[in-house]
Amino acid sequence: MVRRDPRTGAEWVTLAVSCAVLALVVGLIAVQFRGGRSDAAPRAEVVGQERTVGGQHFVTVEVENTGDATAANVQITADLVIDGETTSGDQTVDFLAGHETERMVFVFDDPPSDGALTVAVTGFAVP
């Protein structure tokens, strides 16, 4: 049988730090268990100021999953109504983890300030 030299002080330090790292990871996982998991609940809202570039109007939208579970294929739609005429745009976020936030930009030919802009999450999949 082959045996190794006794562990040095330096190796004991490495082992102690490693145990601390793993304890931290296990502790964080335990917190995830304890907190319970509410269903996914993504919401969208306009954030920041509208920008105009090359005659087009850029609107930044933030979508946040306020639930704990992950939402997949989150569909976000923006409708701009000016004088009864609706212009729509939509985007998809592949995965949105619990409490995760993503930003996106919708582009309109007409200024959103001239009409009523509505952004909303229109659906998502439960992975």
């Binding site: 049988m1 082959v2 190794r4 562990r7 082992l15 730090v17 490693s18 145990c19 790292v21 793993l22």
Partner: peptide
């Protein structure tokens, strides 16, 4: 070769 050393090194490898 000793199981206890391998286990300790495995903990370090994971970390």
């Amino acid at each position: 070769v000793r199981l206890v050393d391998a286990a300790a090194d495995s903990i370090e490898a994971m970390a």
